[in-house]
């Protein structure tokens, strides 16, 4: 905002700037109202998926891959359970459910790490998995796209999937490489 103010003085745009303060706030509320429909709809669908057991199903599906990734976590431990539930809730875009699972997973991983205040390889990997986004339907994004008149709000999905998987692999590879090097 300070940059905007200074720049407006330099470039003599103060009139447009003062109008933009009001327009910006008003258009933000209009935008949020118009995307609310799509977000509520998907949120409802994902709730059905969750209650129908799709989250637990996905968690079971990922468990073998995750067991390979997390070297020091036992397959049947609560830590592994929370990790896989966190990943599958993220995949369904259930952010409200994913975070509590993730926090429980971190707590378990810290116990496995003898409560040190340095991150273990497994904790590090788990956080990296959470800094990359794996989401089946990027609902909020598609809602914005629809609102601004996209002809195909959902067409970007396959590109999003491919990009997130490659990005995730890159993150995991870097994490593993540094861990191996003893960093």
């Amino acid at each position: 905002m300070f940059i905007a103010f200074l720049w407006a003085i330099i470039s003599g745009n103060m009139e447009a700037l003062s109008a933009s303060v009001m327009n910006g706030a008003a258009s933000a509320v209009e935008l949020l109202i118009s995307i609310a429909g799509i977000i509520c709809f998907w949120s409802g669908m994902m709730e059905i998926a969750d209650k129908g057991g799709i989250t637990t199903f996905l968690a079971k599906l990922f468990s073998p891959i995750l067991t390979k990734l997390f070297k020091n976590v036992n397959k049947d431990s609560p830590a592994m359970r929370y990790i896989s539930l966190n990943i599958s809730a993220n995949l369904l875009g259930l952010g409200n459910a994913a975070t509590p699972f993730g926090l429980s997973a971190m707590k378990e991983l810290k116990t496995l790490n003898h409560n040190k205040d340095t991150a273990s390889d497994d904790m590090l990997l788990f956080v990296v998995l959470n800094t990359a986004s794996l989401q089946l339907i990027p609902t909020t994004l598609c809602a914005y796209r629809a609102n601004f008149g996209s002809n195909a709000p959902y067409e970007i999905m396959p590109a999003v999937w491919l990009t997130s998987i490659v990005a995730l692999l890159a993150g995991v590879t870097v994490a593993k490489a540094f861990s191996k090097a003893g960093g």
Binding site: T99, G102, L103, M106, K107, L109, K110, K116, D117, T118, A119, M123, L124, F126, V127, V128, N130, T131, A132, T163, S164, V166, A167, L168, A170, G171, V172, V174, A175, F178, S179, G183
Partner: peptide, 28 residues
């Protein structure tokens, strides 16, 4: 994500988490 997850369990030394996270972002 880094702040929330490490903050919740009081881990202070995050080692190469940020490098790996940013590598994923750059790839994306």
């Amino acid at each position: 994500a880094i702040t929330i997850y490490y903050g919740s369990v009081g881990v202070k030394k995050i080692r190469h988490t940020l490098i790996a996270g940013l590598a994923a972002d750059l790839t994306a």
